[in-house]
């Protein structure tokens, strides 16, 4: 099985390779010896606290920040960076357009830069729901609309990869929902996406792969299922908590037992079903008031990873 997965990964076309990338701002080491590979068809989430080097890394591969050392290659290094970027769609931090131009005119300019025809403008404006406002000046748009226009702009060339840096930052709940729905729609069409965010449920819902960064270093890189496939833990309640935890400590599958807010939390070393545990405790004469088996959420895993 694992062999099959590896072969499949090799067959996938590589879009971006980063090798030993470094960026220093004075004494600050913003990106520290980072290496990664982005394959076609996957949806990647980059997680990391503020200042972890997410935006700097994206800035470097997008030609706006100079690297200190290391390398990155777009599409196997066949194209120069600025030529490669014509096949990429990217939005960073905040939407940047000419405020005095209309939505349509702004997108027309992007078409000239990317050297593509203008006939997809209407179609992409439709995707983000801005077609009826296409002749309004950019400066009259709300932040949510500006962000949606940025997505339309990034989609103009039907990009090989869509790079989104904090696309829902500063938006109201409706705006966040709209952007998220658009991203899901795009992902479902098979577009490769690289999504930097600190909204973990966003990444959990949309992404197939996750990269965790902290202080410029890669802490984890792999499938979202991978980071979440832990043995999980049980939440238990009984009338005598001490007796309960004592009995539990005799089990070989148990790694750690803690008592929190009147509940016993049991962390496992090896897999164990809830029924198995229940049967065992019942045989020992303990009747449970409460039994839940839980898995760590991406958020808990992320917080645990980035704790130190």
């Amino acid at each position: 099985m694992s062999y099959l997965i590896t072969t499949k990964n090799i067959l996938l076309e590589t879009i971006l390779t980063i090798t030993n990338l470094n960026k220093k701002f004075g004494v600050l080491h913003a990106v520290n010896n980072l290496s990664l590979e982005i394959k076609k068809g996957n949806v990647y989430g980059i997680l990391g606290p503020n200042g972890s080097g997410k935006s700097t890394t994206l800035g470097i591969i997008l030609n706006v920040v100079n690297k200190t050392s290391g390398e990155y290659k777009w599409f196997g290094g066949k194209l120069e960076t600025h030529e490669a970027l014509k096949k990429v769609g990217a939005i960073i931090e905040r939407p940047n357009f000419y405020p005095y131009m209309s939505a349509y005119e702004n997108l027309k300019l992007v078409c000239h830069i990317k050297e593509i025809s203008e006939n997809k403008i209407d179609e992409k404006l439709e995707v983000v729901g801005l077609l009826d406002r296409k002749n309004s000046k950019f400066k009259t748009f709300s932040l949510g609309m500006k962000q949606r226009l940025a997505i339309a702009s990034a989609l103009l060339n039907d990009p090989e990869i869509l790079i989104l840096d904090e696309p829902t930052n500063g938006l109201d709940p409706q705006g966040i929902r709209q952007i998220r729905d658009i991203i899901k729609l795009i992902a479902s069409n098979g577009t490769t996406i690289l999504l930097a965010s600190h909204l973990l449920d966003e990444v959990e819902k949309v992404c197939s792969h996750v990269l965790v960064l902290q202080k410029g270093k890669m802490l984890y890189s792999g499938k979202v299922d991978g980071i979440m496939s832990n043995e999980g833990f049980f939440e238990l309640e009984a009338s005598n908590l001490n007796q309960l935890s004592e009995t539990l400590s005799q089990l070989s599958a148990v790694e750690k037992i803690t008592i929190e807010e009147g509940k016993v939390l049991v962390f496992l070393k090896t897999p164990m079903e809830a029924s198995e545990l229940n049967t065992y405790l019942f045989q020992k004469g303990i009747v449970l008031n409460h039994l839940v088996k839980r898995k760590f959420s991406l958020e808990e895993q992320f917080l645990a990873l980035t704790k130190n």
């Binding site: 600025h82 490669a84 970027l85 990217a90």
Partner: peptide, 20 residues
């Protein structure tokens, strides 16, 4: 204006080289 609108950055991201 290219600096204050942030469009210099966006132009480069969209695939214009610094030379261009």
């Amino acid at each position: 204006n290219e600096y204050s609108y942030g469009t210099l950055k966006q132009n480069l991201i969209d695939g214009l080289s610094k030379k261009e």
